[in-house]
């Protein structure tokens, strides 16, 4: 597969070079056009061979980059959500709630921008989100979604820790996940005081949840429009 991919890249670059070259004869043009068609065929074969169905979206990269991009994707989703929450506050949002939700929004933006800068050139693009299923006028809908996102975020970081190779990145993920845990507890308490760590999230051994990237996107995917290719994510 790797060879095919190289060949395909080479064909594509030859094609581009060809078009950029001034003297393109009709005959050469046909040749290049043919190369293009061949590369598309190779691409299709590649998809069929080692990727799940037609799942050819944004790639997360490999190794630690993949895990960092995974976190970046989740932080993008959370930040976008809270920005919307504060742009269109539900009617009953009091000053205390507004202050807390504003803090959370700023934390999520800080996380998002941190990952964007830290990953640099290998960062995934800005994801397109769709929150049409959320009623931003409804406190129940907003806080219910916030709870789902925060619990999901905690379980995502908890589940990803084991795949991080570099110790410094593991500590960074740890620095963020506890803040997500603080958010989750607060949101839960806003919905119903005392549910900060109830038995829907904490098991009999006193352990929080962990989820694999696949499990996380099975839930978060409902809000992401951008097509994501999960093939290089661990788990």
């Amino acid at each position: 597969m790797k060879n095919l991919k190289n060949e395909e890249d080479q064909l594509l670059s030859e094609k581009v070079d060809g078009f950029l070259t001034a003297n393109v004869q009709r005959r050469s043009f046909l040749k290049y056009a043919g190369a293009g068609a061949a590369s598309i065929a190779l691409l299709a074969a590649g998809c069929k061979k080692d990727m799940n169905s037609d799942d050819m979206g944004v790639s997360f990269g490999t190794g630690d980059t993949a895990v960092l991009n995974y976190a970046y994707a989740l932080e993008q989703l959370e930040a976008a959500f809270y920005i919307q929450v504060l742009n269109f506050p539900y009617e009953s949002m009091n000053a205390n709630e507004k202050s807390l939700l504003t803090d959370i929004r700023d934390h999520e933006i800080a996380h998002r921008e941190f990952f964007k800068s830290a990953i640099g050139a290998n960062a995934i693009p800005e994801l397109k989100v769709n929150f049409s299923t959320i009623n931003f006028n409804s406190r129940d809908s907003v806080l219910g979604t916030a709870k789902a996102f925060e619990d999901l975020g905690v379980s995502a970081y908890n589940g990803a820790g084991q795949y991080i190779a570099l110790g410094d990145y593991l500590v960074l993920a740890g620095k963020i996940v506890s803040v997500e845990g603080r958010h989750a507890a607060l949101i839960r308490d806003l919905i119903s005081n005392g549910t900060f760590a109830d038995n829907t999230v904490i098991d009999a051994m006193g352990l929080d949840k962990s989820r694999t990237p696949q499990e996380v996107f099975a839930i978060a995917g409902a809000y992401v429009v951008t097509k994501l290719n999960l093939n290089t994510l661990p788990g």
Binding site: G159, L186, F196, S210
Partner: peptide, 16 residues
């Protein structure tokens, strides 16, 4: 992972 799963519980406690 178990330690991380305890760690986030402590964070929830701290928050509350």
């Amino acid at each position: 992972t178990a330690a991380l799963n305890i760690h986030s519980v402590e964070a929830r406690h701290a928050s509350h």
